[in-house]
């Protein structure tokens, strides 16, 4: 990684302290993301994407969930409208995250629009936690953003390069790694009644649509069915 070895800030400067705090907070997240990035690259390569295409997707989309979903539903030629719609559904949560974090960040004008390119679940969660105690500075955000973005782009590209030498991912069960990863992520949303209704409805509708209509429409139809189910299921619950 082309990192400048000289410290751009005097050690006493608050920028340096904020930057180091960002590095410290994001380090474990970045380490955990490496094998997932390698895996993404390898499976994307098996779906026919070149290492360059993987690098561009990671650098510009920079969203694990959307990229995983896109690769799982990938076809040749790429179904652009369906992929864009699935991406919108997966990333719609960013709007709520940005609305919450935006006012807590010490950034002005164009800086905010540059900084929020790097909005991720992880950077958001760490910043919200930090915002409970102190303002979130540009230096803190920049440290997290650059490390996580560089880490993701490099690890996925490396995965694509290595994956093209690996051959058929089904041979070692790597094709199932996404399914397992997604199940793990879904479990993170808990086991509340509304969540279980959502998951059950989406799974059934997506499987049926995939069987009778085909990819990639199972993603949008299953998602919309689950969202509708959550809306209806929640109405029966007392307000908390």
């Amino acid at each position: 990684m082309p990192m400048d070895q000289t410290n751009p800030f005097p050690t006493t400067s608050p920028y340096a302290r904020e930057f180091r705090a960002g590095l410290r907070d994001i380090a474990p997240v970045a380490v955990a993301a490496v094998p997932i990035g390698l895996l993404f690259g390898a499976v994307a390569a098996a779906k026919g994407l070149s290492a360059l295409e993987v690098a561009l997707m990671s650098a510009f989309v920079y969203g694990g969930g959307a990229q995983f979903a896109a690769i799982e539903a990938w076809a040749h030629p790429a179904p652009i409208a369906a992929l864009a719609f699935a991406t919108l559904l997966i990333n719609a949560r960013h709007v709520l995250m940005g609305a919450s974090l935006g006012p807590k960040m010490h950034l002005e004008g164009i800086q905010r629009f540059m900084a929020f390119f790097f909005l991720t679940d992880e950077a958001w969660a760490l910043s919200e936690r930090r915002a409970l105690e102190r303002p979130v500075t540009g230096a803190y955000w920049a440290a997290m953003a650059l490390v996580l973005w560089g880490n993701w782009t490099l690890s996925t590209t490396l995965g694509a390069v290595l994956g093209s030498f690996m051959g058929d991912p089904a041979r070692i069960g790597a094709d199932f790694a996404f399914t397992a990863l997604f199940i793990g992520l879904i479990a993170g949303f808990g086991r509340s009644r509304v969540t279980l209704v959502t998951v059950g409805t989406s799974a059934a509708v997506a499987a049926l649509v995939h069987h009778f209509i085909g990819a990639p429409w199972h993603v949008a139809s299953g998602a919309l069915a689950g969202i509708a189910a959550a809306y209806l299921a929640a109405s029966e619950e007392p307000r908390s």
Partner: peptide
């Protein structure tokens, strides 16, 4: 509730064909 349901609903929909059929 509907907004909160978006991420799990999408994730499940993506893997349901592989996992179930």
């Amino acid at each position: 509730a509907a907004f909160d349901a978006i991420p799990p609903a999408v994730l499940v929909s993506v893997i349901a064909p592989t996992a179930l059929t």
